[in-house]
């Protein structure tokens, strides 16, 4: 063994440089695409946020934090930020608790597992724009089935998507509906990964009820899954755009304006690219903060190593 190592040492070195050439050759397309399509545009977006660049304008100027100070005074932006936070704050617990409860129900027996998993997963693979249209019909104030049902029991249903009181709740409900199946599948995978022997041990150790076994085994063992689901749901829901664009365009009167839609309006409708980039940076900062929270703070508490 050691003889072979000594003999092959020069060969190895030659092999190593050959390996490096191969590696770079294999990686070259990816590296170029990465630079041109991801790294440079991202850096450009960051720089853009400090300019007053507008598409089609002959020149632009560096304005430092000008865009950000404007953001601070922009009531529309403040509304978008508030709405996004509200949306995340409703969709995250709603879709996580719902998914966990359904996952436990599905896992509690053997019948119908595949069927129910497929049913709840359906929204994940459905075209969001099309399903948003279906929701628009369902929630329509006069012809929508939901209000028709409410009328049957004598309640005058609100204009779900066009009243500023209900619009964010409606969007959040659709958000929960969209995210539930995805989280459910992750929870189901987490549940099947729990060793059966731990439940047996909990029973022999005297855990008297299903709730005690959940507390002693299921919940702690699901910790990493739950953390992952939590972060991914928050990040997914910070990105809310499709339903807003299709259903409300941010209205009525900015009552359902959200970050990405505001950024879209500023950048691609008004062509104020600099200002839009500043909103993008705020969005990026939120996403990064969520990821940081996952790796730095929460991760330590759920991995038992």
């Amino acid at each position: 063994m050691s003889d072979a190592a000594i003999l092959s040492a020069p060969a190895r070195r030659r092999g190593a440089s050959g390996e490096a050439i191969t590696a770079w050759a294999l990686g070259l397309p990816a590296v170029l695409a990465y630079l041109v399509l991801l790294l440079l545009p991202t850096l450009a977006a960051i720089l853009l946020a400090f300019t007053d660049y507008e598409l089609g304008a002959p020149a632009f100027a560096w304005i430092g934090l000008g865009n950000f100070t404007e953001l601070l005074g922009d009531r529309g932006f403040a509304q978008a930020l508030r709405n996004t936070i509200f949306y995340v704050a409703v969709v995250t617990p709603g879709s996580i608790l719902g998914a966990l409860a359904i996952a436990l129900l599905i896992e509690a027996g053997t019948r119908g597992r595949t069927l129910f998993r497929a049913v709840f997963f359906l929204p994940v693979v459905s075209l969001t724009v099309a399903m948003a249209s279906a929701w628009q019909y369902l929630l329509h104030p006069s012809i929508g089935p939901l209000n028709a049902v409410l009328r049957q029991v004598g309640i005058a249903g609100p204009a779900w998507l066009s009243s500023s009181d209900t619009v964010m709740w409606s969007l959040a409900a659709i958000g929960i509906w969209e995210n539930l199946g995805f989280n459910l599948v992750l929870f189901l995978a987490g549940l099947t990964a729990i060793p059966r022997e731990l439940y047996a041990a909990a029973e022999v150790d005297g855990a008297p009820s299903a709730w005690e076994r959940f507390r002693l085994v299921t919940w702690p063992m699901l910790g990493p899954t739950t953390l992952f689901v939590l972060t991914i749901t928050m990040i997914r829901s910070v990105r809310v755009f499709d339903t807003v664009k299709v259903l409300t365009q941010g209205g009525p009167n900015k009552a359902s304006e959200v970050l990405l839609h505001a950024m879209y309006l500023e950048g691609f409708t008004y062509f104020r690219l600099g200002y839009s980039a500043a909103i993008t940076l705020v969005f990026l900062a939120i996403v990064l903060a969520l990821m940081w929270l996952q790796t730095r703070v929460l991760d330590k508490r759920v991995h038992y190593g």
Binding site: P195, E197, L198, A200, A201, E203, V204, D205, G206, A207, P208, L216, V217, P220, M221, G223, Y304
Partner: peptide
């Protein structure tokens, strides 16, 4: 009877220790 009511203790092949405790 439930396992808890039987006055038995068991050592599992995989030990089945609670990893978070």
């Amino acid at each position: 009877l439930r396992p808890a009511a039987r006055d038995v203790a068991m050592v599992f092949q995989s030990y089945a220790l609670y990893p978070h405790l």
